[in-house]
Structures are given as structure tokens and as C-alpha cells.
Simulated scan of single mutants.
Amino acid sequence: MRRLVRPKPLFLLLLAIVLITLITAGQYLRLFERAWFNMSSLWHPVNEQAIALDQYQVALEAQVIEGLDDDVSALTFDPIRKTLFTVTNKNSELIELSLDGKILRRIALVGFGDSEAVEFISENIYVITDERQQRLIKIHLDDDTRFLDATEAEQISLGVHMSSNKGFEGLAYDSLGKRLFVAKERDPMLIYEVHGFPHHNLEKSYAVHVVNNPKRDAGLFVRDLSSLQYDERSGHLMALSDESRLIIELDINGRPLSTLSLSKGRHGLQKTVPQAEGLAMDDDGNLYVVSEPNLFYVFKKQQP
């Protein structure tokens, strides 16, 4: 009768190393939380107010933004002009795009530093971020504006977690609640709510209040934050993660509701979206994504 062969110590050591590596990688990439969300969503009832990102399919994929060589960062929809705006962070420019990704005009940004995000606030009013100095800069944009000088603009510096080199990467605005959401990329990954900027009522004193929501931030099972989008119809916030290749929808309590994967083979994508940096939604619920250096995507909701 043959005796059972005991596993060799070296094999057990290698097996332990592999298991530890897999567990560490899973925690680093937030794979366990993501897998749990995917499983739990199978038996949870669908939220009637949800944006339902899982029902979106790509309608325009990886279209090159012709005439643009610099890296684009961030995206916002202007419901008055019915156009999109993005910023470049090398040769700083504010660029207006059509809804099919064509350049309509380019506006030079002077003194804006490392501009990483832009957000529509109201007619002709936007906010642009300076990532490294953590500045929020309010700008006024007319149809004939050709350049903007930061020294002439209303601005504030939040000065939070200044020791980290990962600064402000995304903006979203709630016009009803007068809240400006500001995303810190990571280390730590946070979403701030800024109240009182931009200043709307000149008859009232200038007061800025900054808060964050640890519970909501803990529900973000992504590695970083690249862009934000607030949907006033549902009151839900969408967050774009470049490293996790994911768009996640959060309800008003910070609970994840749905996701849109930016990986090859998902939602009709032929290739993975490389380094997604900007997210916007128009009045019809269509989603627009830009990725570095200069690719443009459109996602549209399909009827279930």
C-alpha cells in the first residue's frame, strides 16, 4: 500500500505567497467590494429613480478629437448652448465641443495652473479647478471670449490635504441645493461638498462651508476619482474612475446603485477606454466620456 505524500514545505510556502498576493491585490483594487455589489444587485429591487448605468450601450466609440494634441481633462454639459466643455492641462485651454466631439472654439487660460476640471454653474458661469494649488476659479464666458485670466476671476483655495500630490480631479454642481461637489483623486480619495462658492447673492455676506461624507466615500469601491456628474432629476451622483475603468452611480445616501464598465466587451465596447478623464450627461440622459489624450465617447440608454 502506497503511503500518502505530504506536501513539501516549499510548495506550501509558495501557495501561501500566492494567496497573500491575490488577497492584497483584491483589497488594493477593491475587487471584493465590487464583486459583492454585483452579487447583491441580483436580488435587490431596482430603484425606480436610478439612472441605471447597466442599461447603457456605447453609441460612439474612441472618436479622435481632431485638431487637439494635448491631454483633455474633465467634461461638462452646457444646457443653454447645448454643447460640451473640456480643459487641457498642458497648454491650458478651455475647449468647447459639439455633442459629436467636434471642436467649436478654443479659449486660452492664463494663470490657471494645472487645470483639471470644469463645471457649468449657470448661464455663462463656470468653475475651473487648479489641481495642485487646490483653487476653485469662477469664470464668466461670453460667445466672443477668446482668453481668460485667472487674476481677474473670483477664486478660493480650499487647502485640504495639501501634503498629497493628488489634487482636485472632478467637479459636479447641484443647482437646486447650491452645492459644488469636488473630487480629490486619491491619497485619500474624497468628495467634498462646497457651499457658498460660487457666490450668488451679492447682498449676503461671503461665507464658504466645506463638508465631506465619509459614508458615501467609503461606498466608492474604486481606486481613484477622475470626474463627477450630478443628475438633478434623480438627485444621484456619478463618479468616474480611470484606474478601475468604471462609472458608479450613488444615491442620496451614498449607496451604490449601478455601474458602467469601461472595459473591452462591456456595454458594446470593442476596446477598453484608455485613461478616462471626463464625464458629462446631457438633458436627454446621454453620457459623454473623454479620455487622454484626445478620445471621445457617447453612451446611450437602451430600452429594457
Rank of each mutant, 00 (worst) to 15 (best):
V210F: 07
G101S: 03
S122Y: 11
Q275E: 12
G26M: 04
N124H: 15
V194F: 09
G170P: 13
S227H: 04
A74D: 08
Q63S: 10
I95D: 04
E119D: 03
R135L: 14
E277N: 07
L14H: 13
A150L: 10
E119K: 03
Y28V: 10
R266A: 15
H267F: 11
E292P: 07
I248G: 06
L75W: 08
I121W: 03
M189I: 01
K301N: 01
K301P: 01
K166E: 05
K166P: 00
I95E: 05
L22S: 09
G196A: 06
V118S: 15
A74S: 15
H199C: 07
L287R: 03
T88D: 06
N253C: 10
L104E: 14
Y173G: 02
Q133R: 15
K271F: 10
M281F: 02
E33M: 06
I20H: 09
D100Q: 09
V160R: 08
P214F: 02
K90M: 09
S73T: 08
H267E: 11
G196E: 04
D143Q: 12
L84P: 03
V5D: 13
I103A: 05
L68D: 00
V110P: 02
D100A: 07
Q229A: 13
I95T: 07
N201L: 13
I128L: 13
N165Y: 08
N294S: 10
L53G: 00
L260S: 03
V289D: 00
R6S: 15
D143T: 09
F168S: 05
V160W: 07
R34Y: 08
L4F: 14
Q49N: 01
K300A: 06
G26E: 00
Y230E: 00
F32M: 08
D174R: 05
E48H: 06
L279H: 03
L109I: 12
V87N: 06
H267K: 14
L75V: 08
M238N: 00
Y192Q: 01
R106M: 10
I191F: 00
I107Y: 04
D283Y: 02
L94Y: 14
E93D: 14
D282I: 04
P293Q: 07
V18A: 15
P304V: 00
R105G: 05
P198T: 04
I95Q: 06
L202E: 07
S163G: 11
L10G: 07
V5Q: 15
V289A: 05
A183E: 02
V110L: 14
K184C: 01
I65P: 01
S115W: 08
Q229M: 12
E48W: 00
Q155V: 01
